[in-house]
Design a binder for these strands. Structure first.
Length: 281
DNA sequence: GCGGAATGTAGAT
DNA sequence: TCTACCTTCCGCT
């Protein structure tokens, strides 16, 4: 599930449902028991996302004397973590629930977190430190694409690997990297230093649009209007990811634009997908 | 029911 | 470059 759009959507949803309200926090599974106990009963100040990192903020108690005063729950979903949200009282826990959030006052809502690679309690300073390790996030208003360009333009590493490096750009995952390179006809194996500034600016602007759309729809759609199944009179994609894409997980199938077979190869520990005919630039 | 892969990353080697 | 993490879902038997 999780590329940056998923995390930003979660931050928005959790902030809307729990923000400004006292929240019961627990760890039915037990692995986050101490952290949950520390924030249990406190008011959620807000939820924030940077790249694939989610932060739930619990301001310090008034008059507690804490200098910064806050605690954050820092969550990273990893490859298969996820939230299950619902209305009403939370059901009896099923399976391994690392963190359960619930309200006791109406409207009652709950959220269960399973399988995250990270779920830890951090301070304001810790929150800042995580942010400083990450590159600009196309979904954040404070993002500076120039910071990413400074690294890309000096690097012999392939653009496909650079896009997946969270220190360079935060929030892009395997689907967005494959799709954005296809959309601009860029050979995924081109070294970063061979890109032009104009190409990078175009890629960045496209990521901003695609990922915002991803937050809105809670899924990844990258196919332009003229290439949708309806527009091209082809069958829609049928798999669990939902969205329409050009090349991601379409290895061996014909390219929607030229009919060439989509290729796949491991790159930066993941399977890269691309069309060798359309992506020669 | 089992094996494998998956929108990810840290840490060891 | 490899392994561990540890959940879900798919396809195959």
């Amino acid at each position: 599930m999780p590329e940056g759009h998923t995390i930003h959507r979660l931050a928005a949803d959790l902030g809307e449902r729990f923000g400004g309200r006292p929240v019961r926090a627990s760890s039915p599974q037990g692995r986050f028991a101490a952290g949950a106990a520390r924030v249990d009963g406190r008011t959620l100040g807000g939820a924030d996302a940077h790249g694939k990192h989610l932060f739930l903020g619990f301001p310090g108690f008034p008059g507690s004397g804490d200098p910064a005063g806050g605690d954050w729950i820092h969550i990273h979903l990893g490859l298969y973590g996820g939230f299950t949200q619902g209305d009403g009282p939370p059901p009896a826990p099923v399976g391994q629930i690392r963190l359960r959030l619930a309200t006791e006052e109406a409207p009652r809502v709950y959220a269960d977190l399973r399988g995250p690679s990270t779920c830890e309690l951090i301070t304001d300073e810790g929150r800042r430190a995580v942010g400083e390790r990450l590159g600009p996030d196309p979904l954040r208003a404070d993002a500076d694409p120039g910071r990413a360009w400074a690294r890309i333009s000096r690097s012999r590493t392939t653009i496909a690997a650079l896009l997946m490096d969270q220190k360079v750009v935060a929030g892009v995952g395997n689907v967005y990297r494959a799709e954005v390179l296809f959309r601009h006809g860029i050979d995924p194996y081109r070294p970063g230093k061979d890109l032009t500034r104009a190409e990078w600016d175009t890629i960045w602007a496209d990521l901003v649009e695609l990922m915002r759309e991803g937050v809105r729809n809670n899924r990844i759609d990258t196919v332009r209007p003229e290439h949708t199944p309806e527009a091209m009179n082809r069958p829609p994609r049928v798999d669990d990811h939902g969205g329409e894409v050009y090349v991601y997980r379409r290895a061996g199938m014909p390219c929607h634009l030229c009919g060439e077979r989509v290729r796949t190869a491991p790159l930066a520990a993941r399977n890269l997908f691309w069309c060798p005919a359309c992506q020669k630039g």
